[in-house]
Design a binder for these strands. Sequence first.
DNA 1: AACTGTGAAGTGGTTCACAGCA
DNA 2: TGCTGTGAACCACTTCACAGTT
Lengths: 221, 221
Amino acid sequence: MSLPRLRRRELPDATIARLPQYIRCLSQLENAGLQTVHSADLAAHVGVSGAVVRRDLSYVGSYGTRGVGYPVSELRDSVNRALGLATEHRMVVVGVGHMGRAIAGYTGFAERGLRVVGLFDVDPELIGAKAGNPALELLEILPLSDLAGFVSAHDVAIAVIATPAEAAQSVADLLVGAGITSILNLSAVHLSVPDSVVVRPVDLATEIQILAVHAAARERK
Amino acid sequence: MSLPRLRRRELPDATIARLPQYIRCLSQLENAGLQTVHSADLAAHVGVSGAVVRRDLSYVGSYGTRGVGYPVSELRDSVNRALGLATEHRMVVVGVGHMGRAIAGYTGFAERGLRVVGLFDVDPELIGAKAGNPALELLEILPLSDLAGFVSAHDVAIAVIATPAEAAQSVADLLVGAGITSILNLSAVHLSVPDSVVVRPVDLATEIQILAVHAAARERK
DNA sequence: AACTGTGAAGTGGTTCACAGCA
DNA sequence: TGCTGTGAACCACTTCACAGTT
């Protein structure tokens, strides 16, 4: 009998994306008083196959019982731990247009261990105004010139770029200089950053375009 | 010598996502008077390798010249055609919060062959108000009860769900009933729809969570 | 009998490396 | 010589299918 593998505890991105969905489902089950859950139940809730769920849970190192299922609350704790939800990750949002406000005001970050702590913009009309999640304290919008100081003072590692495309690269340079290591890029352009910095691009226009191309292909067929 | 393969002209999603970036770059080069471009140039602009660019362009069936490169304007036309940019794809946005407004007001859709033609919400305070891209005509926000009629009357195939999680599934049901075939789901929950309907989920909180988990892993190391 | 955990095969996409052609 | 076009290897993730365990 070999010990459970302790080596690389690297979660695939696809798994990380599903774990919070399992957590939400597990919390509901726990409230409903359920003690155990099958991979198939979680699978149905998240819209994947049971095999995916079992594979995901094998990564978090939490074991179910063959023939029975998974213990609901232990499993939820394990998944929480795998996601590192004990520590709060602070982030800043640069660009307080509609998209920036949508993120600043999103109420679902707390349960994911995330928190927006700073808002930045160049527009003098916006600077000094307040925005954010009304359930927490509203945040004052600060000028970009305060960004570097703020990031180091508040030990922020994650930034969201929600500026127009033209400003995105210069904001990224600023963020990197300030010590940010992870960037969510909502602008439509590719950002050049050092290898030590991780960028995830999300472009809603591109997502819709993918839908449109497939829709056109289906119509044609 | 075998004819160029005419069979499945299916573009991979990853390729579809990059083509608009090539287009933007090609337009710039064309304005600058350049006649030809190397795969490496496009690659640098988009942040991928030259091999990816060549593979992508081989899908669109546009041929460069070995030893020389690609003809800029012919290539742009080919890419435009591959993306089906000649026909305009109409879409509706359901949920006119910050996220919905960000999409309704986005000015980059036109160059991608996309257009928001309808806005819908349940909030009586919002219904009747106007929102959208100020460069075009502003759109009146309509009640959900108008959705089905609107979709069939205006031949809309694509919808964006930008509602809170609780409303998302019922909105999806409504959209499917109305004949929508493609949905961009910005809510955090999985949507159940018939196989004939394509859903692309985009959850910004999840994207940030992926960054946070990786950041935590790097710190730990 | 029921359900987990996981090798092994399959899939979609990227990277390598090089043959082919101007 | 220089750059394209593309088989083949590779990689990350999913799916299959079944052995293992209670």
